[in-house]
């Protein structure tokens, strides 16, 4: 057991009333934060303090708080999901911060992810990309074929699973200097492109998903590789290369 320790911190947090108003950074002081608490618990503590002082609490997204739902976001000290790699914000703990430290907390910043309120952004652009082609059509009339009935090479299955690990949190867009969504779309294209079930609709899938991605206003990928580094699920740039191949195949071949 580590010794119990509390720290005092300064917070600089983006406050924005709603999508149509301009936001700005506000400074808060928060004392007695346990280093064992998670980052989101620290924000809960801040909100209690704000409510006790008759102030508006900070709105932020969260759900499972165990790194699998992709709901939490937050750009912490200039990095998506904070200083740790391979973790979401909810898995980040206050022991990573020093006593007296100033912590910057901002929402994902992207034209395609408009701020709803404070630190919450609207990520439904991802849903629309997914709806444009991120699926396989199956017969559901009672004669559904068991997925495991189709043999799949182990290597392909592994790569498809690795791509499917994407939780759609949007960290790739947030951290990309171009606000590009190609890691997300690359992962979603790859998870089907690698499997026989996905081959049938491969052409339409990649063309439609890329078209939707462009329409949503995401930027263009310039292969900086920042997305791969900040992705909490370790989605590889190989998935973007695979999407590039799939798109080339679908467009010219």
């Amino acid at each position: 057991m580590s010794a119990k320790k509390n720290i005092n911190i300064n917070l600089k947090i983006w406050r924005q009333k709603n999508a149509s108003t301009k936001g700005k950074m506000e400074t808060y002081k928060l004392d007695n934060v346990s280093t064992d608490s998670s980052f989101l618990e620290m924000l809960d503590q801040l909100n209690e303090q704000l409510i006790n002082n008759q102030q508006e609490p900070v709105a932020f997204d969260h759900d499972c708080r165990e790194g699998i739902c992709g709901m939490c976001s937050l750009y912490i000290n200039g990095r998506a999901h904070g200083p740790d790699t391979g973790t979401t914000t909810c898995q980040l703990h206050m022991r990573k911060f020093k006593d007296g430290e100033t912590i910057f907390i901002e929402p994902w910043r992207s034209k395609a992810f408009p701020v709803v309120k404070d630190l919450m952004v609207d990520r439904s652009a991802f849903d629309r990309i997914q709806q444009a082609g991120g699926f396989v059509s199956v017969n559901t009339s009672g004669r559904t074929i068991d997925a495991n009935a189709t043999p799949i090479r182990k290597e392909d299955a592994d790569k498809a699973f690795m791509a499917a690990a994407c939780i759609g949190c949007g960290a790739c867009v947030a951290t990309c200097k171009n606000g590009s969504a190609m890691l997300f779309v690359g992962a979603k294209v790859s998870q089907y492109a690698l499997l026989p079930q996905g081959k049938v609709e491969a052409t339409e899938r990649v063309l439609n998903m890329v078209r939707q991605m462009d329409e949503e206003g995401f930027g263009n990928c310039t292969n900086t590789g920042a997305c791969e580094v900040e992705c909490p699920k370790g989605i590889s740039l190989e998935n973007i290369a695979r999407m590039n191949r799939e798109y080339l195949k679908a467009s010219v071949l």
């Binding site: 983006w14 750009y75 200039g78 910057f104 910043r109 200097k177 171009n178």
Partner: peptide
């Protein structure tokens, strides 16, 4: 244009 509002604090040297 894809990022109309810039980050107040950004640390890109950590990832690219």
């Amino acid at each position: 244009k894809a990022r109309p509002v810039a980050y107040a604090m950004s640390n890109p040297s950590k990832n690219s």
